[in-house]
Design a protein around this nucleic acid. Structure first.
Lengths: 238, 238
DNA sequence: GGCCCAGATTCTGGATCCAATCACTCTATC
DNA sequence: GATAGAGTGATTGGATCCAGAATCTGGGCC
């Protein structure tokens, strides 16, 4: 990638941070769960020091919250936070799309279509693989846009919310998958037509819609689930 | 502010990070300088542990680069990095402006004008105070926009580049100050006219222009200065 | 029977210790 | 005289130690 932005660091902390982030993203460590340093250290086979620095990194990213003398917890996003973040993301993904129109090649467009075909309704059962394809569709556009900072900021926003929830939302109703696919198709059409403004608008609407679904999920969750009383129930680290 | 996004953490590391960041931002620690943990710890009156975690935080922000086993240095931004970052920032500040149009009050507008008056050409000599006023002008708009995530992302982008350089650029030529003031005036006019699209466009152009000036400064620097703070052939010293 | 206070346990956060890595220097050889 | 190599010094990174804070439990009191 880019040697300037790729802060290599000391490997161990970055690997530790990546490992913890992955477990949160996959839902293995659920939102609201306590992150005990000693437990993570033992599980990952390192001492507490790298774990502490890794947690600090994740805290900066906003994925977890560290309260003084009380440790770290996986943040439970409030619905308004999701809407705020996705409004920002929509603007940025719109920009990425507008830039991509001027830079995309025929091969790139074909590849993009290929990825989106994986999301065509009816083709496959709702699983995590199709959600990965969904991510890849967006990431490919960021790459085509050719602005590393832009891609990085979007990625940082996404990393503030566990992906398993997004996957859940995408698949909880067939309607969502159908809409998602159709929106992607409209974006592809605008890219092919080299219509930057339409591409931007379609992508913005697409992201806002996804954010709204996600926000509604968190709304339902806060309405139905007692978030609290988490005194050492299984932690889920296996 | 917001208890959810304000990751309070353990105070000491955050204070340490803020202190180091401030020294870099002010130019007291120049770009390219080595950041030795023991030295910083002694200077700040803490042990190396909080310093290490603070450096990790700053690394995540992109202000410094940490190379394994070789310590941290204040990053020297490449011109293309500045242009990339400011293109993203322009988009986001444009969004902030568009949102602000729909939310600003008469009092808010008056306050904004007052701050910008501090930047009127001829009123004061080029010093850091006027650059602080410049920052405040933008931050006030972010606040009025009422999207904390948006404000935070913009702030994070700004914190990737030392502010003293921005101040330097703003004042290195009277022309820059004049342009800067005039652009702010156009933004204010659009805000007062409740013309969201014009406000957005003016702010975008304003930020892009500032980014271009900053990028040019780094271009000149890399052309004239040995970057590497060269002890390359200095073995005969002392 | 419920509430409040005190002690003990657990965990985080700061400091210190030690090993490993890297840079720099001095020397020996070509 | 220049270059390659070994040795030494400095600095980072990982592990351990210790103190402070919070929580949980148990007992006493109302």
């Amino acid at each position: 990638m880019d040697p300037a932005l790729t802060t290599a660091s000391s490997a161990l902390v970055d690997e530790t941070a990546a490992a913890i982030r992955a477990r949160i993203m996959s839902g293995e460590i659920p939102i609201g769960a306590q992150l005990r340093q000693a437990e993570l250290a033992k599980k990952l086979g390192v001492s507490r020091t790298p774990v502490r620095e890794a947690l600090r990194q994740l805290q900066t990213g906003g994925l977890i919250a560290v309260v003084p003398n009380r440790g770290a917890v996986v943040r439970v996003p409030a619905p308004w936070e999701v809407r705020e973040a996705y409004e920002v993301r929509a603007e940025l993904e719109g920009l990425a799309c507008a830039r991509a129109v001027r830079r995309i090649t025929r091969d790139g467009l074909a590849e993009l279509r290929l990825v989106n075909e994986l999301l065509r309704p009816g083709d496959m059962p709702p699983d995590t693989a199709s959600h990965a394809a969904n991510d890849r569709f967006h990431i490919m556009i960021h790459h085509i846009a050719g602005n590393e900072r832009l891609a990085r900021v979007i990625r940082e926003i996404n990393e503030a919310f566990p992906r398993n929830v997004s996957a859940l939302v995408l698949h909880e109703h067939p309607r969502h998958r159908d809409d998602n696919f159709a929106e992607h198709e409209r974006i592809l059409a605008a890219l092919e037509a080299e219509d930057a403004e339409t591409a931007r608008r379609e992508m913005q609407a697409h992201v806002i819609e996804a954010g709204e679904q996600l926000a509604r999920w968190y709304e339902r969750r806060s309405g139905t689930v007692f978030h609290g009383h988490g005194h050492g129930h299984g932690h889920g680290l296996a």
